[in-house]
Simulated assay, not measured.
Amino acid sequence: MKDKKGIIIAGGIIGIISVLLVHFGNPANMGFCIACFLRDTSGALGFHRADVVQYIRPEIIGLVLGAFLLSLKNKEFASKGGSSPFTRFMLGIVVMVGALVFLGCPLRMVLRLGGGDLNALFGIAGYAAGIFVGVQFLNKGFNLKRNYKMPAIEGYVFPAVTVGLLALLIASPAFIFFSEKGPGSMAAPIIISLAAGLVVGGIAQKTRMCMVGGIRDMILFKDNYLLLGFISIFVFSLIGNLAFGFFNLGFADQPVAHNDGLWNFLGMALAGWGSVLLGGCPLRQLILSGEGNADSVVTVMGLLVGAGIVHNFGLASSAAGPTLNGKIAVAVCFVFVGVISYFNSESLFKVNAKASAE
């Protein structure tokens, strides 16, 4: 039997750590946000020039290295890849578009709700709807084909890259960009952020924490194991926010958020659908990357490049709401995800192809 008590405790630890990161300097309701932190890192590397969101986030480095070290210890590290790499890269971009129209990843969505931001309810509804649509294609045989065992060195490359990012963060050379204002300028001390990432990375590796997996498993198998982890994150982040005086209930005046319910819903619906096809949420992709999964590394690269595209082309939302470019991008991405879903669903594509031939 799965240890439900274990994942509830794990979620509680993540919830409390997230609030503590805000206490030590991270933006409000952003103790952890995979999409936001990859966006900031993308900006720090010069992939975009939005000067308010540029910072190499130590939490990302810690998440990967925490998963890497624990998977080595438990003999779960395995270099593998080769499953539709470019499709995964493009889906990573799509998920980032949806997340930055909403302004947060699934983990931040839960943390926003724990901080009293009721706009997150539209995001949660959209995320569940997107996952539901994706599950329908899973039931029709959707898959991105098998992966293959790869040389061990392949799995070590990405953790090594994150160590390089840590060196760049500490050295702060002139060619790395750091925000002097806005969310990118708000950060807990490096050692605290890195330690938090290491702990949460290890926890997520051990428990297989994944928001999309939680909702997917509930729909497919009525299994609430993974979902309990995120419910626990919500409960404990709520308690922490109340204790520190961070809680602010309502729709208006929420930090790094907008109150356009329709586009909060659609942004996360897109992120949910794309994440189902990828087999995991952005957090899960980072953890798998640390375990040696090259397919997840490709997805993370898609997320990173996607963040650059989103800000270079004015797709990201702001406190004022979604942009016209962002709305158009979401619509285009829905079409793309629909095409990918259809042509990779064996029982749909083969049956219709056979009917057309006859």
Rank of each mutant, 00 (worst) to 15 (best):
I309F: 14
F177A: 08
V19Q: 06
F175A: 07
F142G: 01
M150P: 09
A271C: 05
A195T: 14
L144I: 10
I176K: 09
A174T: 12
S84L: 04
M218S: 13
L100N: 12
G92E: 03
L111H: 08
F122N: 04
R108P: 07
G308P: 01
T162C: 02
I131Q: 03
G321A: 06
V22L: 04
G279H: 06
F158Q: 05
P255L: 04
M90R: 09
L315K: 01
K354C: 08
M301W: 11
P159W: 00
S237M: 01
A78D: 13
P322C: 03
M186K: 14
W263P: 02
I34C: 00
F336G: 07
L65P: 00
S296D: 09
I192C: 08
M301Q: 07
L113N: 06
C333E: 08
S79L: 05
A307C: 11
L100M: 14
R112H: 12
L220S: 12
E154G: 11
G92F: 05
I93V: 15
S84D: 11
S84Q: 13
A204V: 13
G182Q: 11
L63D: 02
F343Y: 15
A28E: 14
V235L: 15
G280L: 00
C281N: 03
G245W: 09
G272L: 03
K4P: 07
E358Q: 15
F137W: 01
P322M: 10
A252H: 10
G274I: 01
L324Y: 11
G314D: 10
G81F: 01
E180H: 14
A171Q: 12
V330N: 01
S79M: 08
I191K: 13
G155I: 04
V276H: 00
F158M: 08
L315G: 00
E358F: 14
L118F: 15
M186S: 11
G245C: 07
A294Y: 07
V339T: 06
A316T: 14
L38H: 01
P85M: 04
I131W: 07
M211H: 09
L227P: 03
S345W: 00
V163E: 13
A67N: 08
P85Y: 00
A252F: 08
D3T: 07
F246M: 06
L121K: 04
K4C: 12
S356D: 15
V64G: 07
D217Y: 00
M301F: 14
D40C: 09
E346R: 08
F244P: 08
L194V: 10
S296K: 06
L166W: 11
V305Y: 06
A174M: 03
L227R: 03
D117T: 01
G92S: 10
F336Y: 15
I13K: 02
L242R: 05
G81T: 04
L113S: 03
F244A: 05
A269S: 10
Y55S: 10
T207C: 05
V52G: 10
A50I: 13
D51L: 11
P282G: 06
S71N: 12
A167I: 15
D295W: 10
F86Y: 15
G338S: 10
Q136R: 14
A204E: 09
F47M: 07
V161S: 12
G240F: 00
E346D: 14
A171Y: 12
Y127I: 04
N325Q: 12
M301K: 01
M211P: 01
S83W: 03
L107M: 10
R146F: 08
P189D: 06
M1P: 12
P159Y: 00
